[in-house]
């Protein structure tokens, strides 16, 4: 009974993992499309955010769930799951900081054109 329940839980976890990876792949493709299509650096950053959160964090969590229930990975599957989950968390902390500082540098030094833009409160204050 308990064993069957365990089996079902494993299958559910596996299903969630596969769903997350698939969602991640879709979002990643959308992000890449956005990175190509959007007109300027500042707008592209938003597409890149999709690529990071939807395209990397979500599938990594999915991979970690899949590996947790995959027996063929051997006794180190907890390590696999742990590291991929940890990587997801790490990306969640580091990626926004990286984007922020990059945008900051680009804005302060006018490294890329800001057009199209409606309002620039930061630039106004600088002047």
């Amino acid at each position: 009974m308990i064993r069957m329940l365990g089996e079902i839980i494993q299958q559910i976890v596996f299903g969630i993992g596969v769903c997350l990876v698939t969602i991640g792949a879709v979002f990643d493709l959308l992000a890449a499309l956005g990175l190509v299509r959007f007109p300027c650096f500042y707008v592209r950053m938003h597409a890149a955010t999709i690529g990071v959160i939807g395209g990397a964090v979500v599938p990594l969590i999915g991979v970690s769930l899949i590996s947790l229930v995959s027996d063929q990975l051997g006794p180190y599957r907890f390590m696999f799951a742990g590291i991929s989950f940890f990587t997801a968390l790490l990306i969640m902390i580091t990626a926004p900081v990286g984007t922020h500082i990059l945008a900051n540098a680009a804005h302060k030094l006018d490294l890329s054109p800001k057009e199209p833009i409606i309002v620039d409160k930061m630039g106004e204050d600088k002047r």
Binding site: L33, F38, V43, H107, P116, I118, V119, K121, D125
Partner: peptide, 20 residues
């Protein structure tokens, strides 16, 4: 937010700006 921006990627309608 993901769904919103994904829609914008496909349609391309944006009103970007820097606000305080």
């Amino acid at each position: 937010a993901h769904i919103d921006v994904a829609r914008r990627v496909l349609t391309g309608e944006i009103r970007p700006g820097i606000v305080a």
